[in-house]
């Protein structure tokens, strides 16, 4: 193959410089890698790499700081919105985003999530919901569906015993401090493009100090769900989206 085809006009895809060259540790088929990429592409396209600080969670994305080529802070479990609050207030000209999973954002960090949203911090919160604790080996999450089997609900989530799956995104949409609350997914190319537009909006809102922009990404966990990547995406569409329907929950003018 001739090298002359490597020309700008032939370029259809390239790695964004807002991602490092580190190999991601995410399982093949996992939505984290795609979500990382589109967040990074948004940062690149907005030209804000040097004015962005990201907050990584505890969970599968704990090492997100190794992948985003922006200044990063790694928070204690659930506390990313508290860190983001301080960073944004002390550096109001910066773009600040937190990146959390369901256990981090909707279980141990519920108070930090609710209060950062209620105060109307001018930050972007990215929330990956795959209904399971991936990093610790597939335990029940606050968002685990009824009857869903996990390592700590081996016979399925029994609502009477274990409580209900939590729709935290619907809760934060009720709070006056949020300006944009949306639920997206990244398991098809069309949905990736749509999710990227939502993330772009969520970052653009920071320019206008409108409050929290909250993007839930309903994702998969083929390792934790014990399925092939393809089967996991089918299961996501049939089960997760039935309980967590996609779309905007709140768009403030």
């Amino acid at each position: 193959m001739s090298k002359d085809i490597i020309k700008p006009e032939n370029l259809v895809y390239r790695r964004t410089p807002v991602l490092t060259k580190n190999t991601m540790h995410y399982c093949p088929g996992c939505g984290h890698g795609t979500t990382h990429r589109i967040v990074a592409e948004v940062i690149e396209e907005m030209g804000i790499q040097e004015q962005t600080i990201g907050i990584a969670p505890v969970g599968c994305a704990v090492l997100a700081y190794n992948y985003f080529e922006v200044d990063m802070q790694e928070a204690a479990h659930g506390r990313a919105p508290a860190l983001a609050t301080a960073v944004k207030r002390l550096k109001p000209d910066f773009f600040v985003f937190s990146y959390q999973g369901d256990g981090d954002l909707a279980a141990i960090g519920t108070a930090e999530t609710i209060h950062a949203c209620n105060r109307g911090e001018n930050i972007t919160m990215i929330f990956i919901n795959n209904g399971i604790y991936g990093m610790t080996g597939g335990q029940m999450a606050p968002t685990t569906l009824e009857d869903m089997k996990t390592a700590t609900s081996p016979y399925g989530r029994d609502i009477a015993m274990m409580g209900n799956p939590l729709k935290i995104t619907e809760i934060v949409a009720q709070l006056p401090g949020t300006c944009y609350v949306t639920r997206q997914a990244v398991y098809t190319p069309a949905l990736v493009r749509k999710c990227k537009r939502a993330i772009r909006q969520a970052f653009e809102n920071q320019k206008e100090n409108k409050g929290v922009s909250f993007v839930e990404v309903v994702s998969n966990c083929n390792s934790g769900w014990k399925m092939t990547p393809v089967a996991a995406n089918q299961w996501l569409e049939e089960n997760m989206l039935a309980f967590y329907p996609l779309g905007d929950l709140k768009v403030s003018k």
């Binding site: 600080i53 907050i55 802070q73 928070a75 204690a76 506390r79 508290a82 860190l83 983001a84 609050t85 301080a86 960073v87 207030r89 002390l90 550096k91 108070a111 930090e112 609710i114 209060h115």
Partner: peptide, 26 residues
């Protein structure tokens, strides 16, 4: 100077973490 009443001491110390990580005196 930023002054903020946090939702808990847990949030307070983690806000301190975020601010300190920016090189600010918090």
């Amino acid at each position: 100077m930023v002054v903020l009443q946090a939702e808990s001491e847990v949030a307070s110390i983690n806000m301190v973490y975020g601010g300190a990580a920016c090189g600010k005196r918090v």
